[in-house]
Amino acid sequence: MAVVKVTRPKLNAGEKMYLGAIFKGFVITMKHAIASMRNKTRGADAMESTGLGITMQYPEQKWDGHLPDYYRGAPALVTDEQDRERCVSCQLCEFICPPKAIKITPGEIPSDDPWAKVEKRPKEFEIDMTRCIYCGMCEEVCPEQAIYLRKDYAITGLKRADMVHNKKKLYEIGGKRVGLVNKWNELK
């Protein structure tokens, strides 16, 4: 069962010369080339390209509108309705992160803070975007719904240091996210 013997097709004399097949091949390749040169590449409409190939001309044209909800872009931290930073620096993302891109410095919330009940939050939260592989493990592992992969994908920088997103930048990208579980309210 496992092995299927495929018999080679029997070729006639003309086919054995290959010339016909090669000529047919030329026609196909030329058809593509001519269609491309006429800006009529097949499938170009669907990709919104110019028609010279289906390649999108990236910085001028973008696919942003078509990004699916499950798109995994840059990871970012979010705040909730009450503007509380959701991260409590449990460091599970740091632990799970396959390329070790995340570095968290935990800190204690001072007792005069309105959210002193939470006790802990990150003093510093750094994601090295040169290391990040956009796997989304951090989002999956987060017990506090604090880290999400956003749709930002153009993460650029002129220096390595520019590519390290610090806490401020992460909250900037992440913004506010509503409708999450509020486990730190007084009801518990």
């Binding site: 409590v88 449990c90 802990k120 017990p143 506090e144 518990k188």
Partner: peptide, 11 residues
């Protein structure tokens, strides 16, 4: 028991 394992050092 509060479910505060994320901030609990014992976790």
């Amino acid at each position: 028991h509060p479910l505060d394992c994320p901030i609990c050092d014992q976790a």
